[in-house]
Each structure stands twice: as structure tokens, then as C-alpha cells.
């Protein structure tokens, strides 16, 4: 007994240790490789140059086109996921019979379980042709189609976390609102959603950070052309898609071109790290509010 306990304890400790070491290792590689990159490319150029052409003969190292590409697809995704996810959360919490909720929630989770490569091809083969029917000038690769599909993918992030936030609103507020003559709709959107705002915002930030990090869908359907634009109809490239492109290409290891992926990766890491922390912080403050 005692010995098996000890083995289990050591085993658990080891898994925790490996996790921490891996994380630290990844962060260390990101920073050290980026450091050597930034000895050759100035931070000013990195953040102000409007072109990103490390793989061309005339090289530019401006991250802005990749950033706007990421921003564009993310904004489109959130524009889809927030209204749909929030509506689902409100519906499940305030309107749907309990049985329905029990069926719909697992179904929604399935959305998050579909491999992203499937979403990517769905965007490229189904959604883009469909959108081209509506917007004839649209390019075969563009930000809109993968943005929308990414939005569908992150709906469960928004809906399930928002639902938790709505459920945490004390029943006494519902009663107060109904008691003064509100309809269900008014109660949901004028009292409950504002009362759950911090939780909902936290869920959206988490969804944003998921969208920023999403790789496969944009790599497949958005094109690979870093372009400083906010036009959703033309090919663009996101940070993640660029990293994939270089990793799969034949750029020699150790070259400056190769190191760009670490600089881009660091940028990505910073973005999602900050967002996750904001989300975590908001969520914790929100919890305290009602306990």
C-alpha cells in the first residue's frame, strides 16, 4: 500500500514537472531565438515597416501585415461567435426547457471537437463558393470565409462560458425584474446580460485568444499573401499561417528567414498570453462579486 502510494505520488509529481519544464523550454526557445532575430532586425522596423517579405530577395520584416491579417479574421470570427453564442446562452438559460438544454449543450461541444482541418476545407470548398455567389468580386482565398467558419468553431466557447455567467446571476434579480413588469426578453437582455457582463466579456476574450491562435482554417482558406489591408475579400496571411508556411518550406535552419517564425511566434504568444490573463482576471473578480 505505502509503496504504491509513493509511486503514484512520484508519478504525479513527474507529470507536473514535465509540464512545467516543457512550458519553460518553449518560452525560452521563443525568447532566445527572437533575441538573435532582433539583433539583425530593429524593433522599429519590425513594428513600422508595412511589408513582410522575408522569403523574397528584397526583404522586409514588418509584422503589421500579419497582424492585420490575424486581426481581420479574428474580428470576423467574433462578429459571428458573440451574437450567436450569446443568443444561445440566453436561450438555454431563460427560455429552453431543461430537457432541451441537456441535449443541446453536448451537441454544441461537438462543434469544438471537429478537427480544424475539416473546418478549413469546409471554408475553402463550401463557404467561399457560396460567398462568391453573393459577392462576385471575391477572391478564392480571403479573410471573410475562414473568419466566419472560425466564428462557428468558437461558438461553444462563447455560449458555454456565457451560460455559466448567466446562471451565476442570482435568481433574486430575475424576480426583481419580472416583479416590475419586464418581459422575459427585457429581463434577459437588460438585467441578466449586464449583470453577467464580466463573465461574458471574459468568455469573449478567451474566444478571441482562441481565434488568434487558430492556424489550420486560415492556412487553408485565407491565402498566403501578407498584405496590409482590412478588405475581407482579398487573400491575406495571419501570423499562424505564416509560421506554418515557413516551417513546412525549405528555409535553411538558423538563417534569418528561419528566425522570423520565432519573432512571429513570440508576437502571437504575447497576444494570447495577455488576453488569457485579462480573461482570467475578469473571471476571478466576477466570481467574488456573488459569493
Amino acid at each position: 500500500m505505502k509503496i504504491s502510494e509513493k509511486i503514484i505520488e512520484k508519478g504525479l509529481w513527474l507529470s507536473a514537472f514535465i509540464t512545467v519544464v516543457t512550458t519553460v523550454g518553449i518560452i525560452w526557445v521563443l525568447f532566445s531565438e527572437s533575441f538573435t532575430f532582433f539583433r539583425e532586425v530593429s524593433l522599429v522596423d519590425f513594428f513600422t515597416d508595412t511589408q513582410w517579405t522575408p522569403l523574397f530577395t528584397k526583404k522586409h520584416f514588418g509584422i503589421l501585415p500579419l497582424l492585420t491579417g490575424t486581426l481581420l479574421t479574428t474580428v470576423i470570427a467574433i462578429a459571428v461567435a458573440l451574437p450567436v453564442g450569446l443568443t444561445i446562452a440566453v436561450y438555454l438559460n431563460e427560455y429552453a426547457p431543461k430537457n432541451l438544454t441537456r441535449v443541446v449543450k453536448p451537441l454544441l461541444e461537438v462543434l469544438a471537437a471537429i478537427p480544424t482541418v475539416v473546418y478549413g476545407f469546409f471554408a475553402l470548398i463550401v463557404v467561399t463558393p457560396f460567398l462568391q455567389g453573393i459577392f462576385p468580386g471575391m477572391a478564392g482565398f480571403n479573410a471573410l470565409s475562414p473568419g466566419i467558419v472560425m466564428g462557428i468553431m468558437i461558438i461553444p466557447f462563447v455560449s458555454s462560458l456565457s451560460e455559466d455567467a448567466l446562471r451565476a446571476v442570482p435568481n433574486s434579480l430575475r424576480e426583481a425584474s419580472y416583479g416590475i413588469g419586464s418581459t422575459r426578453f427585457q429581463t434577459a437582455f437588460k438585467v441578466l446580460v449586464p449583470a453577467a457582463a464580466s463573465g461574458i466579456i471574459a468568455s469573449v476574450i478567451l474566444a478571441i485568444s482562441r481565434a488568434i491562435g487558430e492556424t489550420m482554417i486560415v492556412a487553408i482558406a485565407a491565402g498566403q499573401q501578407p498584405r496590409l489591408t482590412l478588405n475581407p475579400m482579398v487573400p491575406i496571411e495571419t501570423i499562424t499561417a505564416y509560421i506554418v508556411q515557413v516551417s513546412l518550406g525549405d528555409v535553411p535552419h538558423g538563417s534569418l528567414e528561419y528566425k522570423t517564425i520565432f519573432a512571429a511566434g513570440l508576437m502571437l504568444f504575447m497576444l494570447t498570453f495577455v488576453l488569457n490573463n485579462i480573461s482570467f482576471w475578469i473571471n476571478r473578480r466576477f466570481r467574488q462579486q456573488y459569493e
Binding site: L173, E175, A176, S177, G179, I180, P194, A195
Partner: peptide, 11 residues
């Protein structure tokens, strides 16, 4: 109108 046992102002 109704007033409840525990004060329940809106946030």
C-alpha cells in the same frame, strides 16, 4: 409591485 425578503437592487 413587489418587495422581496432580501434587498435585490440591480447591479
Amino acid at each position: 409591485g413587489m418587495v422581496f425578503q432580501k434587498p435585490n437592487p440591480f447591479p
